[in-house]
Structure formats: C-alpha cells, structure tokens
Amino acid sequence: MEMKPPFETIVTEHAAMVLRVCRAVLGPHTDADDAWSETFLAALRAYPELPASANVEAWLVTIAHRKAIDVTRARQRHAIPTDTVPERPSTIGNPGSADHDLWNTVKALPTKQRQAVAYHYLGGLPYQEIAEILGGTTDAARRAAADGIKNLRTTLRHPVKEAKE
C-alpha cells in the first residue's frame, strides 16, 4: 500500500505554492493569508480521507480556489457603508514595492485569466485540472492562461523584479 506522508510534509512542500496562488487571486494582503490559512485548515481536516494516489497540488489548489471565493464574498459583505472596520494592514510580512507592481498587474487581469495563470504558472496544474476547477473546456483554460500571460508581459514591459520582502 502506498503511504501518505504526515500532513506536515504536505505543508512544507506546498506552503509557498498555495500562498502564491492565493496572492495572485486576492492580492498580497491579509486576504491571501486568510485564504492560505483556511485552505490548509480545511485540507488538514479532510486529509485522512484523501486517497494516497491523489494529486496533492490539484487538491490543494481546488480548496484554495474555493477559499479565495469565500474570502472575496466575506470582504464584499464587510464592504457595506455602515461597516467601520478599516482595511487591515498585513500583520505578517510586508510585500515590497516591486512585488506590489507585479501583484497589482496580476490583479488587473480578468478573473478567468488571473485564475488560469495562478493555477497553471504558479500552482503548476495541468490545464485539464484547471478546467475541472473553473468549469469549461481544457482548451478554454489553456487560452485563458495564454491570454493572461500575454497581458502580463505586455503590461510589465520591464523584466519582473525580484520581490524584496
């Protein structure tokens, strides 16, 4: 029987990937941190039932996709005018400015393109898995990622700078 690694191994191996994906979808702020935390908490809860043969990246990105939607909805609910809660600054880590330009450019992409870029180029998922997460065909997922990358490259005329967190 194939052995599943302890959950700690899953976190160690995929923590950075999931954070990249959450930041690409939500921006490099506490929203992304919240989505990351909710993703790994939900994954830990469900881990005993995950088959040993499962594609862990696809499983995590699928959860992150749902948690990012939850966080977005929660933010929209909190955005009503009567709500006086100010936007929280990031409590952990402070994304540098070069980093910020990049994330802002990613954020400006149409949703489908942003998700496809995040899940393929940052999450490492094949287009077939992305199609399952986003709905639609594999070709549509491939096109969305290609268009997204094209748009990013056009906008970021200069080469991507190193993040200085």
Binding site: R20, L44, G93
Partner: peptide, 19 residues
C-alpha cells in the same frame, strides 16, 4: 514570475504558526 513571487520564509513560518 516564480522567482519574483517567492514568499519570504519568515512569512511562511508565521502562517505555519497560525495553522
């Protein structure tokens, strides 16, 4: 893109602690 989006180890450590 991957290089520029590499999260800081300290940030990941704090997220781990939160988890």
């Amino acid at each position: 893109l991957l290089a520029a989006t590499e999260p800081a180890p300290e940030h990941l450590r704090l997220l781990h602690q939160r988890l």
